[in-house]
Structures are given as structure tokens and as C-alpha cells.
Amino acid sequence: MSESSPTTSTTSDASIRAEGLVKQFKDGPRAVDGIDLEVAPGEIYGFLGPNGAGKSTTVLMLTTLLPITDGRASVGGFDVATQGSHVRATIGAALQEAALDPNLTAVEHMRLQTALQGIAKADRKRLGDDLIERVGLSDAADRKAGTYSGGMRRRLDLALSLVHRPRILFLDEPTTGLDPQSRTALWEEVARLAREDGTTIFLTTQYLEEADQLADRVGIIDGGKIVAEGTPAALKSEIGLPAVEILPADPGDHERVIDVLRANCSYDESQQTGNGTVSGRLREGTGLTEIVRALDAAGLKVANLAVHAPTLDDVFLAKTGRKLEGAGDDEEQDEHDHDGHHH
């Protein structure tokens, strides 16, 4: 190994830092197109974007699994390109499609992982059992991973990535395909890791809610570029004030309600859902009270009136002109029942 010692680390105290990171596949797309980012120690950074945006490619480069085409990156103070083995010793990673061997049990996976990570022989068994318990798999510890549900697979994958107590953890779409309950359980564990152990977490996701709930800061990636970055609150406030939604009691009043909104809000034709509800975004200085008064003054009766704070989806829409939610979420349920159609 010709790698230099950890003293040649980068100047900043960032856990993860990338400058002008590029990945150009041979005969393929520029999957990552000049990304700059910095993640502070102990921070949970959410990398949000639709399928094919370049999230996984970025993670593969930062975890040394894919060579960088251009730019620089350091993880835990080590250069990703030249100090690969130091980087790998510092990080843990649970990559997409929990890479488990269907023939091994959780205990056997732990045995393999602890040995690969060079954990002292005497500690392996105890450490493995502890981690299995921590992710709530003790009851299934001796079952083959091939029999696990999606949520169990992700939990075991997470536990395996924690074997060597990494300071920095990469989670690539950790909850894709999980049911809401498993998702919440995994969120809690991730949040606990950051809170109690001070682990830096780099998490990619295509779920707004996940980034919103979990991440201290969010980077939105689209087409290989970061299009927005900041805390969820800051990003949302960039969009502006809450939106108001009004459903007129008499559908015939639709146009008149639009006139009221035009006068008091920023109304955008293209943002209408077309289901009878009319919506507009509040302006600085205009509150809900003003809208209600204006509706009264016009003699309009309202069936429903609601106020919505901006979401990260609004941020994504504003930055890319497309909606994120559902972009890569088209799993179909195939429920053919051959006995179902007798003649």
C-alpha cells in the first residue's frame, strides 16, 4: 500500500467534502456533473433527487467504489482517490439493494463482516449479537437472510455497516420499498446514531418526507448537479409564504374566487389541480385574515379553506420545473389470480 498517513488531511474539519466532483462513464452519460458539497461532523445530510439523478454514483465515488473522473473529494479527512483504504476504514455503507447472501443467517453475516473488518476474535461474537439486537433482529438471527422481509434486510444491512464503529455512514436509499412502519423504525435508528454516537450520516433518498424529517441539511440533485442546498426550513422559506386553498361552496363561484386570489395572492394558473379547489401563495404582509375578509366582502361562501406550508416538493418544482414525488415510484402490483376467472 502506497498510501500516506492521515496527517495529510484537508484543511477544513468537514467530514465529507467534494469539489467539482465529476463522473463520466465511458460511452455513457455524465452521471455526476460538477458537485460541490460539505458535510460537517455529526450532521445528517440528505441527498434528495429522482431516480437517475446521480445520487448513487456520488455515493459510490465517495465510498471509493468508483473512480472519480474529475474533481476532488475527501472523506473523514482522507483523499478518496489516493487514500482509499483509510477512507474505507473510516466509513460504513449500506448501499442500494441490501447486498446480503441469501444463504447466510444474520449471525453468519456478522461473523463474516467482523472478520473482514479485522475485529479482534474475542469480540466478534458479542459485537455481532449486540448489533443484531440493536436493529431488532434477535428473533430472526439464525434464519437465512433469503427468508427476510425487505425491512429486515435493510436493518441487517445497516447493522453490518456499523460493525467497525464508522465515524461516517453512507446510506443509499435506505428505505426505498419499505412499508411505513419499517421506514419509521429505520429513521429512528439513524437519528439515534447521529444524536448519541455523533456519527456523520450521508443519506440519499427520493422521498421528501425522509429528507424533511431526518436531515439537518438537504442537497437537491437533478441531472448530476446540485440545484439547491440548505436546511429544509431555509429551502422552504426560499419558496416563500404558505399557500392558501379554497373550495367554493357553489361551483359557479369558481371564477370569482380566482379574482379574489388574484387580488390578494400570487396566483399561478399552471399550479391549479383542476378539482374545483383554487389555490394561491400568500404574499408578504398578506395574512389569512385579509383573504377571509375579501371573500366576505365579495359575498362568497366557502366549503373548505386550508393553508399549506411549502414542502420540499415545492422547492424541487421551483428549481427543476418538475415534481419529485412519484418520479421513480411506479412499482406495480401484479395480482393475477388464475383461478379467478372461471367460465
Binding site: M1, T63, T64, L65, S85, R88, A89, I91, A93, L95, Q96, E97, A99, L100, D101, Q113, L116, Q117, L160
Partner: peptide
């Protein structure tokens, strides 16, 4: 194909 090799490549120096 299953991605298992990635785990090995990450874990072993």
C-alpha cells in the same frame, strides 16, 4: 450481480 462483492470490497483492505 447481487452486490455482495461491494460489501467485501468495502470491508477488506
Amino acid at each position: 450481480e447481487s452486490g455482495f462483492s461491494r460489501r467485501i470490497m468495502l470491508a477488506t483492505p
